[in-house]
Design a binder for these strands. Sequence first.
DNA 1: CTTGACCTTCCAGTGGGTGGAACCCCTACA
DNA 2: TGTAGGGGTTCCACCCACTGGAAGGTCAAG
Lengths: 141, 141
Amino acid sequence: MNIGDVARMSGLPTKTIRYYEDIGLVSPLRSTNGYRTFRDSDLHKLAFLGRARSLGFTIDDCRNLIALYGDDTRASADVKKIASEHLERIDAKVDELLAMKKTLSHLVHECAGDHRPDCPILEDLATSLDEETPKATVANL
Amino acid sequence: MNIGDVARMSGLPTKTIRYYEDIGLVSPLRSTNGYRTFRDSDLHKLAFLGRARSLGFTIDDCRNLIALYGDDTRASADVKKIASEHLERIDAKVDELLAMKKTLSHLVHECAGDHRPDCPILEDLATSLDEETPKATVANL
DNA sequence: CTTGACCTTCCAGTGGGTGGAACCCCTACA
DNA sequence: TGTAGGGGTTCCACCCACTGGAAGGTCAAG
């Protein structure tokens, strides 16, 4: 299979696949004309990567997950650990975004959004220093 | 004020403040020894930036927000538009993360996490190609 | 006069790709 | 046989918003 074929089948852009080769995630063979030649196992690995990335795992996580996948003496605890830590990162990010959302949606709701210059959004941004609303707004909730 | 002073007062790292000067967000004066000299207005602007960034606005948003802030003929509608679009980005990101979370927490829950190699997490990652679970898992919910 | 805390610039790297230029290869068709 | 197109290849630069580190200048205190 050429790169275009695995791109279609894995759903990954060719650029990404070349990049994955670059960083050593996949190692296709080369045919005499210099084209990459992908085996079924390469395609399988790329699909694995695509799925893992779509679940938000980092490239580094992917590296470890692939290693575990190929190790039949693995302990599922090791996989679970990676996934659990990732889940915690997701939770933290969601919390952070929800805190932003809470503040922002409040401000947007307050703002008339008309032709006049008066704007509670700008007021909030401008008064953060004086009013001293530290990291609480961002960190909590 | 030197950069360290505004860093302390604004809560931004000195590196970030220099970077903001680099990209033209703030323009401190220079004293004879080459040190940056910040006015109250610079500090104010940096605090504004810090607050806006902590609410997740992009640098580009910040540029526009600052311009609007300094324009007393602005329409609050313009500010509201920036904030609303940002809010939409946040919502989209939250949805994406919650979809990941849903899938992942299910898988983590299913995984024994012991010394044995059997692992539903790896199984999910490995079977995405055959089972054909397209972008639905990521895009929906 | 030295120590240490400041400040300066510049260069490189982060993560995870993406865009584009310049070029090679292969097949189909006139 | 020429050419048009749709593959493929490399390499370099860029995205975002910083961050780290090296190498050096400046200043106040002891």
